[in-house]
């Protein structure tokens, strides 16, 4: 049965929807679209939906991916057009393609991701100062952050997972671009980086809007293509 990879955007109010709820929203949208989603066998059938990487609550996802296994023949175009008509506001279908059966699990493909954090400051940010402290930050061998886990607070070195950081400013808007390790191992959260960078300046980490702009594989290609 066909496995269709759907690229979608999650923004607006939908950025405050949790990953679990997005999964359910897709399942319901498939029903509304009249598309037969495939389910696992057993007492508790689960829909065969595989998401590339959960999007943290509050983050915008410009190009997110989900692999959908159908129980009937359907072209990517059909899936895209039918699904596109019944998605809730803020979850928009961008593209769809068929993925061969033997291609690897979508989640396993994700290796790193690009983010853009945007925040407004009270006065025009001094880019030279920011660039300088960014250099110093990246020159550090290790950068420890605290991470809340089910087993309590854990200290974690995020430096190995930071591939690059850059900054730009326009009027009072400060933009920080980041390329960070993502996926199942060594994942670094952009919010953690912003927190570690707090001395940078006038914007509080929780006043940034963070946008995930790309999900990439280990060879730097978009996950979409794998």
């Amino acid at each position: 049965m066909p496995r269709i990879r759907v690229a979608y955007r999650q923004n607006g109010a939908a950025r405050f929807v949790s990953h679990l709820d997005v999964m359910r929203a897709f399942e319901r949208a498939m029903r509304r679209a009249g598309l037969k989603l495939s389910y696992t066998q057993g007492f508790n059938p689960r829909p065969k939906l595989t998401f590339a990487a959960p999007l943290p609550v509050g983050m915008v996802g410009l190009r997110e991916y989900v692999d959908i296994v159908l129980d009937e023949a359907a072209s990517p175009f059909l899936v895209m057009s039918r699904l596109g008509r019944v998605m809730p506001k803020g979850l928009s279908v961008l593209n769809a393609r068929e993925v061969p059966d033997e291609s690897p699990n979508l989640m396993a493909v994700v290796h790193h991701a690009r983010y853009l954090a945007k925040g407004f400051t009270n006065k025009k940010p001094d880019l030279a100062v920011i660039q300088e402290s960014l250099q110093a930050f990246l020159a550090r061998r290790e950068i420890y952050v605290e991470r809340q886990t089910s087993k309590g607070v854990k200290r974690k070195d995020i430096r190995p997972g930071i591939r690059s950081i850059n900054a730009a400013a326009e009027d009072r808007e400060l933009r920080i671009g980041m390329e960070l390790k993502a996926g199942q191992e060594g994942n670094v959260r952009p919010y953690e980086v912003l927190t570690a960078l707090q001395h940078l300046g006038p914007v509080q980490p929780d006043r940034f809007v963070i946008i995930r702009t790309a999900l990439l594989s280990s060879n730097g290609r978009l996950v979409w293509e794998i």
Binding site: A13, A14, V17
Partner: peptide, 10 residues
């Protein structure tokens, strides 16, 4: 649970 306050449901 921010989704309590944002609306925009289907």
């Amino acid at each position: 649970k921010p989704a309590r306050y944002v609306g925009s449901e289907y």
